[in-house]
Amino acid sequence: MNTALTILIDGLSYASWLFIVALGLTLVFGVLKILNIAHGSFYALGAYAAASFVGWFATMKFAPEWSLVAMLFAAIAVAVLVAPLTERGLMRFFYGRDEVLLVLVTYALFLVLEDVTKLLWGANPYYVSEPYALFGNVEIGDQVYVGYDFMLMGLAVAIGLAVWWGLNRTRHGKIVLAVIHSEEVAASMGVNVSRVYMLAFSVGIFLAAIGGAFTAPLISVQPGVSVGVIIVSFAVVIIGGLGSIEGAAIGALIVGLARSFAVHVMPEAELFSIYIVMALVLMVRPEGLFQRIQARKI
């Protein structure tokens, strides 16, 4: 029983940050029709920025609780600085082009951002320990779990609900959905499609960055951290279905629980377990579990 509970909690914790990152990936695909290989680099920028902001807050003698605010500011800073440069300076020149070309462009951007992070932060690892200790430990039965993991689960639920509400219950969200369904019709009705692209890309980068920022206390922030993230993020959206919010949630849960089960039962199959699950889903549902008839509906 204790092992099953540990697998469940570890799986939910892993799925939480993964859902946040994958949500940004599927949102960008739904609106811009871009399979963004560089999404993992935005995650890494968020993690590095969080390490820098938390360290700066510590040197300014702020209370440890402010480290959470520092991580949020780090994610916002990445979105505000990187989104305009990337979307206006690069991506908008390739809209409507062949999908393979778009993948190659984002892959080139991924390589550039990898070197940029090394130039800015070097090759040494960074550690963000302050936020991890804020939530103490949680006792369930005779097992003790880290409270930060439960905070991360709550954050994932809050962000998922906020994105769903923003898309389905606000005027700007309905405009975004109109562009997703048909950008030509939306443009003919007076919608500024270019502005919607910028908004969606900015939100996608923010989600990747906030996923990286709040995962930083759990990992060693170092070069190469973006590679593993983009691989498992693609696994999530492939399992759930590209362009689906509920698909991203279910896909993250499946990947998180599969990985957690492998870690506790068969550690040597940790990474392989994700691909097994992805292959099984693709055999039954090649379009993903939640893919609609409208291929890019969120």
Rank of each mutant, 00 (worst) to 15 (best):
I9K: 09
L134Y: 13
Y197E: 00
A75R: 02
I245C: 03
A83G: 03
F110T: 10
Y14D: 10
V176Q: 03
A74M: 04
A49K: 05
F135I: 09
H39A: 08
E287K: 13
E287V: 03
D115N: 15
Y14Q: 05
G240P: 02
V237M: 09
A213V: 06
N36Y: 11
L280M: 14
S194V: 08
E139D: 15
V163A: 02
G251V: 11
N36I: 12
E114C: 05
G224N: 00
I293Y: 12
V112T: 13
I274P: 04
I231A: 12
I238Q: 04
A51N: 05
G241I: 15
I245S: 07
Q222E: 13
G122V: 12
L152E: 12
A208G: 14
N124I: 00
Y43V: 00
G241M: 15
T3S: 12
K61P: 04
V193A: 08
H39K: 04
A248W: 01
V227G: 06
I20C: 04
R285T: 07
A63L: 14
A248S: 08
R92F: 07
E184N: 06
L257G: 14
V54E: 15
I219M: 06
G11N: 10
I254W: 02
S13H: 09
L8S: 10
L282V: 11
W165D: 01
I180F: 10
R195N: 09
G211R: 03
